[in-house]
Write a protein that binds this DNA or RNA. Structure first.
Length: 515
RNA sequence: GGUGACGUGACCGAGUGGCUAGGUAGAGGUCUGCAAAACCUCCUACAGCGGUUCGAAUCCGCUCGUCACCUCCA
């Protein structure tokens, strides 16, 4: 397989042709959500981008194993490593089992991701289900001299690691000395850490802590960077192809992940390609839980957020996100979403158009190299080239609109389309479908429910009945019969769909046909 | 303070030395019983100032402005 896809690698700060370590297999890991509250739109960007990435890799012929974890343990709140586990805190407030909270938000998250058109990952590992793997990893880190225990807690020794020439900071472009200089908690006397840069691998649980597990060091819980190193290693190997996440995870989370993995499995950068999607902003400011300026995914779907005037469907949101390149920030606004909705629907109308165009059989071939044919195949090539260029979905979508404009033109003049080379016709309609549905993952969302449409039909039925009755009263039999034949047409048509219209004294109703 | 990113037309948003981005909105037209959709045409911008170059939105410098990471965060 000839590689064509280039990806921007945070580690090298440049784009490079993507070459899997073990083609045709590709291992992809994306940092998933912490399930102690509902996800906001910002949390959806990574999954959507990586969904397109894995879809495209598969389109290119790779066999992908896509892992997206669920963090249901370990992330601490508050300053340093003090404070309660976020999940525990939430659980106490709601009088629920911690795992119940985690389960609830995990399910919600997965429903949202599915609605947004994200195919389920191949593996969705939970941090809580991989405590033994994490303990094993800590043991290795200690054995290799990069971890130390204090009072039942274990910390990663960043200075020792860095002194060994492993390059702490290589991903986020930090220098250990500068980090130390900029550190502000260098005076906290009771801190167990030897260096402010050290981070927890294992924490002893205090009595308020609801989630804890036995370990060689204490009854406690794993540190918050460890799960991804441990789980990615388990399912993808000590070094795999692509690791992704939000830009804000680059430091310290991903930096620490690399350190942990390398402390165990030197030399490795855990993944050969590190990808980071940019943030979603609201009024130019990053959407974040701590700032409180977030729009949850539910709010977006329901329109129940002050910054929104209405609800936006999942596919509108997906299209909105894909209209920007993943490494750019994208500002979420009502206007922007409205524009996205129209664009998305336009694309969907195009999908329906294809059936009409594909039904055109004949051909008065003008050759596949005619100018008209080239005009059609050029945007298709441009779309794939855009995706190959660091997954530029914005540019790919622009190319699709270019193609669509032409197809719409041909729909009005089928004889012109018929005159084109058949293989070209087939190729471009197929490409449109593939790009829109399979690669970008945009599906045709039903605009109206069957029930709503049935209601409309029954309204016409009722009106016709009233008109018929009125005509009969006025002695206009011919007029009345005209209406009755209309009424019968509606009855027969609905019957064919398995619906029986029932005329009752109280009005018109319907039921499923029992035949 | 350290590090990094960005500033594109009414709005969103690609591009990164010469070639129309695209979507939305707006104006005009074609089509049309009315309308919608669609198509055609128009509105053609790159924060400011200097520099490099035959040529810069694109490279360099300065100025102004915005944002991000350095602390949980996708």
């Amino acid at each position: 397989m000839q590689p064509t896809l280039s990806l921007y690698n945070t580690l090298t700060r440049r784009k490079a042709l993507f070459q899997p370590l073990h083609a045709p297999f590709v291992g992809v890991y994306l940092c998933g959500p912490t399930v102690y509250s509902e996800a906001h739109v910002g949390n959806a960007r990574g999954p959507v981008v990586f969904d397109v990435l894995t879809r495209y890799l598969r389109y290119l012929g790779y066999t992908v194993r896509y892992v997206r974890n669920i963090t249901d343990v370990g992330h601490l709140e508050g300053d340093a490593d003090e404070g309660e586990d976020k999940i525990s805190k939430r659980a106490r407030a709601q009088q629920l089992e911690p795992m119940q909270v985690a389960e609830q938000y995990t399910n919600l998250y997965q429903d949202h991701m599915e609605a947004l058109g994200c195919l389920p990952p191949d593996i969705t590992p939970r941090a809580s289900g991989h405590i033994t793997e994490q303990i094993e990893m800590i043991r290795q880190i200690i054995d290799n001299g990069f971890g130390y225990e204090v009072n039942g807690s274990v910390y990663f020794d960043v200075p020792a690691y860095n002194a060994a020439g492993r390059g702490y900071g290589k991903l986020s472009n930090r220098v250990v000395e500068e980090l130390l200089a900029g550190s502000r908690d260098n005076l906290t006397g009771q801190d167990e850490k030897r260096s402010p840069l050290d981070f927890a691998l294992w924490k002893r649980a205090d009595e308020r802590h609801l989630m804890h597990w036995p370990s060689p060091w204490s009854e406690g819980f794993p540190g918050w960077h460890l799960e991804c190193s441990a789980m990615s290693r388990k399912y993808l190997g000590a070094e795999f192809d692509i690791h992704g996440g939000g830009l804000d995870l680059m430091f310290p989370h991903h930096e620490c992940e690399i350190a942990q993995s390398q402390a165990c499995n030197h030399p490795t950068n855990e993944a050969q390609v590190w990808m980071h999607n940019n943030m979603i902003t609201v009024n130019g400011q990053k959407m974040s839980k701590s700032l409180g300026n977030f729009i949850t995914i539910s709010q977006l779907f329901n329109g129940t957020n002050d910054t929104l005037t209405q609800a936006y469907s999942p596919m509108t949101v997906r299209f909105f996100l894909l209209q920007a390149h993943y490494r750019s920030t994208v500002d979420i606004t009502d206007e922007g979403l409205q524009a996205a909705r129209k664009g998305y629907r336009k694309l969907m109308n195009g999908l329906r158009l294809l059936e009409k165009l594909d039904a055109i059989e004949g051909e008065i071939a003008v050759g596949s190299d005619s100018a008209a044919s080239k005009n059609l195949t050029n945007p298709v090539e441009a779309a794939y080239a855009a995706l190959d260029n660091d997954l530029n979905t914005a540019k790919a979508i622009a190319a699709l609109f270019d193609l669509l404009r032409q197809l719409n033109g041909y729909a009005a003049k089928p004889e012109l389309f018929e005159a084109l080379d058949k293989s070209v016709r087939r190729a471009v309609t197929a490409a449109y479908r593939t790009l829109v549905q399979d690669v970008l993952g945009l599906r045709d969302e039903p605009r109206a429910s069957a029930e709503d449409l049935l209601g409309l039909t029954l309204d016409f039925y009722k009106t016709a009945k009233q008109s018929a009755a009125k005509a009969r009263e006025e002695g206009n039999a011919e007029e009345a019969n005209k209406y009755y034949s209309e009424i019968d047409r509606i009855r027969v048509a609905l019957k064919e769909q398995g619906i029986v219209v029932k005329d009752t004294k109280t009005g018109v109703d319907w039921a499923y046909s029992e035949e």
